[in-house]
């Protein structure tokens, strides 16, 4: 007969494993900063890829309506592929303030 029930033992094992994993990751990130690359993958999911987004995905981005989305798609069709988000500044309707907001939501891949 032990001190803990089965559920309590599982919970303690889980917490201990998580703490060990976190401590190991902390040590790894300090020694090899490039190991944080997996965070970039999750950050990319948070943003809309300007080169793959269709009309619906572009209009989902706050600050992009029907007209702006169409302009972006036409621009993309004209030049083939957007290399840098700064290119959007040249589009009609995208003011510097609006571009600052869009930068947080859009990514180039």
């Amino acid at each position: 007969m032990g001190i803990f029930t089965r559920q309590e033992r599982n919970a303690i094992v889980f917490a201990a494993a998580l703490a060990l994993l976190g401590a190991g990751l902390d040590c790894l990130y300090k020694k090899i900063p490039a190991a944080r690359g997996i965070r970039l993958a999750s950050e990319r999911q948070m943003k809309t890829n300007i080169n793959e987004a269709d009309m619906r995905a572009l209009m989902d981005v706050p600050g992009i309506g029907n007209v702006t989305a169409r302009r972006i798609l036409e621009y993309r069709q004209r030049i083939g592929r957007i290399q840098d988000l700064e290119e959007l500044r040249s589009l009609k309707g995208i003011t510097p303030k609006r571009f600052e907001r869009l930068q947080e939501q859009l990514a180039v891949e």
Binding site: L18, A19, L21, Y29, A41, S42
Partner: peptide, 20 residues
């Protein structure tokens, strides 16, 4: 808190990577 936070970040990043 920091250890659990880093482990959580890994789990969430894995989740989003698998989703992608």
């Amino acid at each position: 808190g920091r250890s659990f936070g880093l482990a959580s970040e890994l789990l969430i990043s894995l989740m989003l990577a698998i989703n992608s």
